[in-house]
Design a protein around this nucleic acid. Sequence first.
DNA 1: TACACTTTTAAAGAATTTCTCAAAACGATG
DNA 2: CATCGTTTTGAGAAATTCTTTAAAAGTGTA
Lengths: 228, 228
Amino acid sequence: MKILICDDDREIVDAIEIYLKSSGYEAVKAYNGIEAVEAIENEEPHLIIMDIMMPKMDGIAATLTIREKQNIPIIMLSAKSEDTDKILGLQTGADDYVTKPFNPLELLARVKAQLRRYTELGSAEINPGAYQSGGLVVDDTCKTVTVDGNDVKLTPMQYKILLLLIKNKGKVFSINEIYESVWNEDSYNAENIIAVHIRNIREKIEINPKEPKYLKVVWGIGYKIENI
Amino acid sequence: MKILICDDDREIVDAIEIYLKSSGYEAVKAYNGIEAVEAIENEEPHLIIMDIMMPKMDGIAATLTIREKQNIPIIMLSAKSEDTDKILGLQTGADDYVTKPFNPLELLARVKAQLRRYTELGSAEINPGAYQSGGLVVDDTCKTVTVDGNDVKLTPMQYKILLLLIKNKGKVFSINEIYESVWNEDSYNAENIIAVHIRNIREKIEINPKEPKYLKVVWGIGYKIENI
DNA sequence: TACACTTTTAAAGAATTTCTCAAAACGATG
DNA sequence: CATCGTTTTGAGAAATTCTTTAAAAGTGTA
């Protein structure tokens, strides 16, 4: 796990680095907001520890910039222990707020808690029963399929196949797996049957069926819904 | 959004409830760990605020029980401001730790931050079934191969060979071992076949195929994926 | 039964991959 | 440094896998 530490006080950065490394984390350092934003693009850290008061670009501005594109956990660090500062920091998009001076072990525990949430515990399903990839949405509660907001009518078989694929978007299913999963029978003549269904689904959900954007073939293996 | 408040001090529960409701949250109340665990099953809250010191079942024990099945955010509340207590709480599975007395507005900000992480920002994608060596990643679920983040398209045979090698990175496979493992047949003309495949794989995954970084030959013995 | 629609079958045409063969380059060894 | 066996390389034929079309068979409904 790679962690970006960003503070204009080099002593603090070095101290945090020592603690992180002792727990087996990799550390990347930055000394102002601009460097932090750059480091995120280049190093792709898994978590950011960021001071608020910094030259050039402060932690609040950096957090806003980062949140435009990224969703990685951010722990804010600040000498300001005023509650209003904490509230502002958390509102900006930070996941946690620690005031200086801090116990390094507490910071470490908070780092671990944030990483656990981010990497292990995961997040809630916003709309249970709805699956999405790019502009393609399958809502299994309403049994509707939309592409870029436009309704698409699929036949029952087409729908079942698409649902299986998008429920596991990114995962590749062989023709037999699709057949056995959708038909609940041993596969017979599955190649042809699936091939035709795939084509008909593409006809409906793809802008250009010849160059599918969503429903892709993985040569020699099977089909999948691209994870967009 | 539904939030479970759990504390044996009814005044605190009621106070928090008022603040939460003023921000548009729905509140569910519990007064010890056992009630909390029950409430989670019945009410399915989106976040839990839980005191540590409680009769019957304390907050630590309740958190452990909850985490066996659930991944919803838990904010711990406690009069203990000792750092070791915070660390223990966070280690147990809590996402945040707030010490009493607290500013209700800060608690509210932390509630919002946790809910944002849980429902909006989401989590990192963790990939079971992914194998890696340096910048080379083979994801066997999606059947994808990436080098330094760039997608690489392999043919089925190329993929199977690479998967075998990277699954056992560092281990050397003879040409016959590769053939028999990938083709499930006795080897015939394997030298040539494997050689060509190795070449084609290198062409795709190596920056400079002449000096392979990942897929190395071990003279007179076979091939392996370097363990980086 | 007639109609509209969905599913399956069959098969040709495209596209892609695998294998073969032969020659060149390379590493180890005396 | 000459030789031998191993590995690398290039190009094209053969085999396999997808895509597409079209028609037959099946299903439900008025």
